[in-house]
């Protein structure tokens, strides 16, 4: 390509930077209290005081977007952390050693792959909080930590698959054989020699996973099974806003746009990094 400037990287960095700025600022300073209702401000339009207007309870939408984006980011990071962490371990061991353990684990992963990740998360959520897993939910509390665990588990198969296939490829490479001849231990080969070499594949996978986590969290919150009140959430704001779509379309627009920009920024960043 003759394009010299990496537009993806530039725009992606700017968008992601803006979003991070919004979220980090929200940790220290919020223009209004996100929960304070003011019936006089119900559906107030856009104004300098309330740049995104107010919702059906008269709460400032801009403030709620700031808080909601923070929740979304937290959930996405947690999800990717659990999914990638466990996925790397499972994928590395099965891919590197192969054998019957690999066969069995991969059969199960394949079976889990048949469930859309959001369905899997729904299953986990519906199982948490009662019966024998109730203990876990007591420890986690309800709300966002449950979502993180549910989505994290749902994301393990996809990470494990990618990592496994990379390990399968890398273990046949001569540098791995060389390390074995030199007397390297298996763990050292797996995590010191091979792991850096799968980074070019792993990093985009993690970034795509992050985006999927954002979208899944929003989807679950929209359905009302995700993050629970009092935590503000972009998905739930959308589902509330939908009721008032006739009278106040802008209420739905801003939380939705925030999700779009968050995901867009990150995917551009991922593409830009790959292009480099």
């Amino acid at each position: 390509m003759k394009r010299k400037k990496n537009f993806n990287l530039i725009i992606g960095t700017v968008l992601t930077g803006l979003m991070l700025l919004l979220i980090v600022t929200g940790l220290f300073f919020l223009p209004y209290d996100p929960e304070t209702m003011d019936i006089e401000l119900k559906f107030a339009g856009m104004s300098p005081a309330h740049p995104f207007g107010c919702d059906n309870y008269g709460r400032d939408v801009f403030t709620r977007v700031m808080v909601g984006a923070r929740t979304t980011l937290l959930v996405a990071l947690g999800t990717v952390g659990i999914g990638a962490g466990a996925g790397i371990l499972i994928g590395a061991f099965t891919g590197y050693f192969g054998g019957w353990v690999d066969e069995v684990v991969m059969r199960i992963i394949d079976a889990l792959f048949a469930f859309p990740s959001i369905l899997l998360a729904l299953v986990v959520i519906s199982l948490l909080g009662n019966g024998k897993l109730g203990v876990i939910s007591l420890l986690l509390g309800s709300g966002k930590y449950q979502v993180i665990l549910a989505l994290g588990i749902a994301f393990i198969p996809s990470f494990a698959r990618v990592v496994r296939s990379e390990y399968l490829k890398q273990r046949e490479m001569d540098y791995v054989k060389n390390a074995r001849i030199m007397g390297c231990g298996h763990l050292r080969i797996m995590f010191v020699h091979i792991l850096p070499n799968i980074m070019p594949v792993l990093i985009p996978t993690v970034m795509i996973g992050f985006n999927n986590a954002v979208l899944s969290e929003a989807g679950m919150s929209y359905l009302g099974i995700g993050v629970q009140p009092p935590d503000a959430s972009l998905g739930r704001m959308l589902s509330e806003a939908q009721t008032y779509l006739f009278s106040q379309p802008s209420y739905a627009l801003f939380p939705g746009l925030t999700i779009v920009l968050l995901v867009l920024g990150f995917s551009l960043l991922a593409d830009g990094l790959e292009e480099r």
């Binding site: 929003a218 959308l238 779509l245 939705g256 999700i259 779009v260 995901v263 867009l264 995917s267």
Partner: peptide, 12 residues
């Protein structure tokens, strides 16, 4: 841009 739009927001 379209890739970043969640299906339910596209629905809305």
């Amino acid at each position: 841009v379209v890739m970043a739009v969640p299906a339910f927001f596209a629905g809305i």
